[in-house]
Design a protein around this nucleic acid. Sequence first.
DNA 1: AGTCGGGTTTGATCTCGATCAAAGAAGAAA
DNA 2: TTTCTTCTTTGATCGAGATCAAACCCGACT
Lengths: 227, 227
Amino acid sequence: MNRLLRPGVRERETLLSSRLLSQLGVESAAAMMEIAAIGTLPARQILFREGEAADTLFCVLSGYIRVYKLDPDGREADVELYGPGDLIGVSLVFDGGRYTATAQAAEPSTLARFDLKRVREIAGRRPDLALVLMNALSEQLASAYSNLANDRLHTAPQRVARYLLDNCAHDGKAASFRLPYQKSLLAGKLGLAPEALSRAFSMLRGHGVNVRGRFVQVEDPEALRRI
Amino acid sequence: MNRLLRPGVRERETLLSSRLLSQLGVESAAAMMEIAAIGTLPARQILFREGEAADTLFCVLSGYIRVYKLDPDGREADVELYGPGDLIGVSLVFDGGRYTATAQAAEPSTLARFDLKRVREIAGRRPDLALVLMNALSEQLASAYSNLANDRLHTAPQRVARYLLDNCAHDGKAASFRLPYQKSLLAGKLGLAPEALSRAFSMLRGHGVNVRGRFVQVEDPEALRRI
DNA sequence: AGTCGGGTTTGATCTCGATCAAAGAAGAAA
DNA sequence: TTTCTTCTTTGATCGAGATCAAACCCGACT
């Protein structure tokens, strides 16, 4: 973590409007703001490693953080990709112990850090914080289950199609949007090698999907759904 | 759910010693016991389906419950396998809404059921219950992440080897144990077709693993670890 | 504009595991 | 025990995606 500061005016605003603080009562939000530190990370910087003692809860303010597990010979499997507003390490608030995966900035990012001990303490006193944390955790579990089922049931083009639908979802009509990050990152998130993602895109071309750089057009969402 | 009763003496005992109630203070445990109902399920019975309104939290007392997702053409992907002591639906306590997957008894089972509204209410008053729920949720998330990474990084024999090591773990020495459920169930849990599990076992035979029915002997855990 | 370096695409190959089909084993029930 | 059903194993085939290698593209920088 390069810089590590008490939040400035800009950061306070971002943080206050984040999913974490915006759902809290004023007092709890203030208590959390009190213990927040802001840090920036250059791309590729490691935030924490699997097995390290866990002492910090993170909230992504900008950028993307890739969380992955390693296997003995160094291959990596992405387990979750956290973007602005997401909390990293919620499961450690009460589970304690150690980080169960490694986190790395996928691009230059800014995060808020909260000391876990103090978060525990505040959550003990303030049910609204405990509630927000449980909600975040629940969402993450649902997301993990989806990913797991998605991996096991769907082919690469199907997974990509679902991703596109989930991320433009303009009810029925044609839509277009910009991928929020590199394709290789998306590939990891979907559990694919970059080559496989590329091939999936090129096969979807025949089904009304146009890709140019990060720009994606979906001509017929209905057709995609049936892939 | 066939029978649906206030807990009898036997069930009260099981429930009190379950991971859920045993970690609670006496008063919280009593409050939960107060709202508990016990039910038995025959094998294959559906407990709830993906998309249904969620109104119940379950605690497995005996047997195994398979939780899976369906794809459009009816194929199933297991997402978690819950056994005695496990809680099903924790993420719904506060997340509310609907079940995000389908649950089915993998064998004749008995469960405790708790009305979600009442659980919410008690958890609001009693931090120790909220804590236990968060713990359960955290564990489930960690487990889901492991499964996801496991799927993406390891081959079938490797996954089976890990399962065996995790489930006999007698530090270093040879060990043997009984699979707690059918092989086809294990296959699903590991994200494999039953045939693939069978082949994995027969390849592990060359590495000191003997399987006869549900009985498994591991001659050399160290060798397994290196598969 | 040229050059450099990364991400991305394309091609060729190969391995793993799904799937279909059928034989074999093991429980449960009569 | 015998029968019947369900689970498991084995065999053969097939396709999806990983991997390795090389070409390509594009933005950043000089």
